[in-house]
Write a protein that binds this DNA or RNA. Structure first.
Lengths: 123, 123
DNA sequence: CAGTATCCCCGATGATACTG
DNA sequence: CAGTATCATCGGGGATACTG
């Protein structure tokens, strides 16, 4: 049960629960280049809804990955930025990114081959 | 990094769609040590249901991350093993694992601090 | 043993509307 | 601009039962 690196309470599982959703990874990636305002993040991460953006941003702040800075001006200006911890996390995430760029074509090829194999075209 | 790596068609997004669910990461991790039988994988990855295990295994085979070997014996014996591509993927995944082990306590602390801050209990 | 087939539920996500 | 609030949906995933 416990003690096994794959059981429910291990750090890896917990991290996975956090970064498991692609939004987190994408947001952290988007912020690597520097702070961004709420709307800017939303634009970089295409397809994310406002609600989910808000939720994800908030939980990343909660986890110490991002800092939120609200400037008391009108209209409101809020910026999100990676913390040192966040920048730290960005590194392994970047490795994944590199892997994707280097190997996704292999995955695509494997997928096509598998589908061909399992799709009796000449039925 | 290239132009805008965050749009829907970029390799990163595609990879995330695959490894986004924690099961994939856990299964690949479990197989790093060597081939495992269906049931063995299920035991290593606690909490996964048989259905999801089957589904995840199948899609990993489809993507060329794993190979499935069925021995024609009774009772059936099926083994799953990382392909070279899979072993390749295991590396960046391992980085994430290391990060988790080294930093999850910081995340936990940040989380507690945030919650305390946002819990108007004491005043 | 290693799956496949079903039913079912819940919670994450999207769409929409409103506000400081 | 940067959120919050509410509702409806959709399907991933669990539990269970059956099979080669």
């Amino acid at each position: 049960m416990l003690g096994n690196p794959y059981d429910r309470d291990c750090p890896t599982r917990q991290l996975l629960d956090r970064i498991g959703d692609q939004w987190t990874v994408l947001i952290v990636g988007a912020l690597r280049a520097g702070p961004l305002r709420f709307t800017q993040v939303g634009k970089r991460v295409e397809g994310i809804s406002q609600k989910v953006l808000t939720q994800t941003l908030r939980s990343l702040v909660r986890d110490g990955i991002l800092v939120r800075t609200a400037y008391p001006v009108i209209p409101p200006r809020v910026e999100y930025e990676l913390t040192p911890l966040g920048r730290d996390l960005a590194e392994p995430l970047d490795m994944l990114d590199r892997w994707a760029r280097h190997h996704m074509d292999q995955v695509t090829a494997a997928r096509a081959a598998f589908d061909a194999e399992h799709t009796p075209a000449s039925a």
